[in-house]
Simulated assay, not measured.
Amino acid sequence: MVNRVVERGLARCPRCVAVADYVFVETGPDGGLRYEVRCRKCGECYSEDSREMAEALAVTVELLEWPPDREPVPEVDWRERARDTAAVVVARTRTEAERMRDGLARARAQLASSRAELPDLVQRVRPTVPPQWLGRMQLKRSGQTGG
């Protein structure tokens, strides 16, 4: 007895409601039909037969052999993926922190050298500028207080 496919198409999976393949198969000379839904996402294979109850109890029909799919999609180890991503983030953060530390050390060294040069610079510039530029300005205080 050869089963004949009458119709093919797309339907919703009864388990996960994803788009799935369906077929109507003619199951024999009595005109019975079998409805099969094969979900590629969750792997559910649902079928129902439409024939009289007396025949349904007496006849057992094997399900169609569907070609293997690549789906359901292989599971992803999210913990390992998160660990790998975290390791990359930590490595980049360390390199950025080292760059910042090196830049801060260079800035401190430049600041120290410029502080050391400051008195010499003042001595060289002092004769050419007015004295009030280099001295501290004395503010005259009046009798008012507060701001």
Rank of each mutant, 00 (worst) to 15 (best):
Val2Trp: 04
Tyr46Asp: 11
Asp84Pro: 02
Val59Cys: 00
Thr85Gly: 03
Gln123Glu: 15
Pro130Lys: 10
Asp77Ala: 03
Leu57Asp: 00
Pro74Ser: 06
Arg106Ile: 06
Thr93Gly: 00
Val23Thr: 04
Gln144Cys: 15
Cys16Arg: 01
Val90Ser: 05
Leu111His: 01
Trp78Gln: 11
Val37Gly: 08
Ala20Asn: 02
Thr145Cys: 15
Pro14Met: 01
Ala58Val: 05
Gln110Lys: 07
Ala18Leu: 03
Gly28Gln: 09
Asp84Trp: 01
Ala86Trp: 04
Glu65Asn: 08
Ala109Thr: 10
Glu44Phe: 04
Val59His: 02
Tyr35Asn: 12
Glu80Phe: 06
Arg136Thr: 12
Val129Pro: 07
Met1Lys: 05
Trp133Arg: 11
Glu7Gln: 05
Ala11Ile: 04
Ala116Tyr: 07
Ala56Arg: 09
Arg40Asp: 14
Ala107Tyr: 00
Leu111Asn: 04
Thr145Trp: 15
Lys41Ile: 14
Glu48Ile: 13
Arg126Ile: 13
Arg4Gly: 07
Arg12Cys: 00
Val25Asn: 07
Asp77Trp: 01
Arg136Cys: 14
Leu111Gln: 03
Tyr35Asp: 07
Met53Cys: 02
Arg70Ile: 04
Glu52Gln: 10
Pro14Val: 05
Arg141Trp: 13
Leu64Ser: 05
Tyr46Phe: 13
Glu96Lys: 04
Cys13Met: 01
Leu118Glu: 08
Leu118Ile: 11
Leu63Pro: 03
Gly32His: 01
Ala58Trp: 01
Gly147His: 11
Arg136Gln: 14
Ala82Asn: 03
Asp30Tyr: 04
Val37Met: 11
Glu36Lys: 02
Asn3Trp: 05
Thr145Tyr: 15
Val61Trp: 03
Met100Glu: 12
Arg81Phe: 02
Pro72Cys: 07
Gly146Thr: 04
Val17Thr: 09
Leu121Thr: 14
Thr128Gly: 09
Pro130Phe: 05
Asp102Ala: 08
Arg126Glu: 12
Pro130His: 06
Val73Ala: 13
Pro67Phe: 03
Gly9Asn: 00
Arg8Gly: 06
Ser114Tyr: 12
Leu121Ile: 15
Arg101Phe: 08
Trp66Ile: 05
Cys39Leu: 01
Met1Tyr: 08
Asp77Glu: 08
Leu134Ile: 12
Gly31Ala: 02
Leu57Glu: 00
Ser142Phe: 15
Glu48Asp: 12
Asp49Val: 09
Asp120Ile: 12
Asn3Ala: 12
Gln110Pro: 01
Thr95Cys: 11
Pro131Tyr: 10
Gly32Cys: 05
Ala58Ser: 00
Met100Leu: 11
